[in-house]
């Protein structure tokens, strides 16, 4: 029999069920993350780890211009990628939710999701092919007589990284916005028009605020992993497109300086978290004051 005020039988069963996945996440996520934090306070002494507690790595990471510059650029590129991706994605989500017949919605979502599941590396590489000096885009534009000289601002720089990642994260941005739009009771829009708003003001005063949770989710789900990408910068970014993740990778795998790599990883994660929280906070404030 259940004790008075205690947990119900079903709650106890759900704890038992959660035990396996939760301990897995503790063992393989929480503890390793803890180890990374620990490492960031240690130093690499040639092949050994010096386990005396020190802030030296943080001092180095924050004082050396290269790390500051990479982190700053990563955040800037991630921000740009997020903005471009979400702005491009919103009309698609809106179109599928409001203009596509219900029976065809899942077909559209399916079409949008397919490219996302195909080999990431090869997709990124193909953008290099498309955007390159002798690439598909330049040769076609030249062939059609639109341009005389190949466009060079689209490969081996931050622009290429933004385009490629906007492509890679498209479904991640579309789906949350779509879900939020689907949840909007259509009679709210009719009510708004009945109360004297036109289509545009209805969109601004009803649809957009109600879709905001989806937009926020899309923003975070694009912004956060972008920071951790090192494939796209390496393949299409050129020297000016490299990001903090490339440096983390270099520290771990090439320079064999795990503590500094750990420090950079933590700094990257911290800045992402701070920006994400700031964004959520601003968004809440904005929604409430309206």
């Amino acid at each position: 029999m259940a004790t008075r005020g205690g947990l119900g039988q079903e709650a106890r069963r759900s704890i038992a069920l959660l035990a396996a996945p939760f301990s897995y996440a503790i063992l393989l996520l929480a503890m390793p993350l803890g180890a990374v934090v620990l490492f960031s306070f240690w130093t690499q002494d040639f092949l050994d780890i010096d386990t005396t507690f020190t802030l030296a790595n943080y001092e180095e990471a924050l004082s050396q211009p290269i790390y500051r510059m990479l982190l700053g650029r990563s955040l800037w590129i991630a921000g740009a990628v997020t903005l471009v991706t979400v702005v491009l994605a919103f009309p698609i989500a809106y179109f599928v939710s409001f203009y596509v017949a219900p029976s065809r919605k899942s077909l559209w979502l399916f079409l949008i999701t397919i490219p996302f599941w195909t080999s990431y590396l090869i997709r990124v590489f193909l953008w290099k092919v498309i955007l390159g000096f002798n690439g598909v885009l330049n040769t076609s534009l030249q062939g059609l007589g639109f341009i005389d000289e190949p466009l060079t601002f689209i490969l081996y720089n931050a622009n290429a990284v933004v385009i490629t990642l906007a492509h890679a994260f498209a479904p991640f941005a579309i789906l949350p916005i779509f879900v939020a739009l689907e949840r909007i009771d259509r009679s709210l829009l009719e009510a708004s028009q009945d109360l004297g708003e036109n289509k545009v003001t209805t969109f601004l005063r009803v649809t957009l605020p109600l879709a905001m949770p989806g937009v926020v989710a899309a923003t975070l789900i694009v912004f956060i992993p972008t920071i951790g990408d090192y494939v796209t910068p390496r393949l299409v970014g050129g020297p000016d497109g490299l990001m903090i993740a490339n440096m983390i990778q270099t520290q771990f795998l090439r320079l064999n300086n795990a503590p500094l790599g750990a420090t950079l990883a933590i700094l990257a994660m911290l800045s992402v978290t701070v920006i994400a929280l700031l964004f959520i906070w601003l968004n809440r404030k904005w929604l409430r004051t309206r």
């Binding site: 996440a25 996520l29 390793p32 990374v36 975070l220 951790g228 990883a265």
Partner: peptide, 19 residues
């Protein structure tokens, strides 16, 4: 917490397990 990897940069997962 179990859903966390969804919003965690993959490189963080990689690095922490490597360590």
């Amino acid at each position: 917490f179990i859903m966390l990897p969804l919003v965690l940069p993959e490189i963080i997962v990689a690095v922490s397990l490597l360590v």
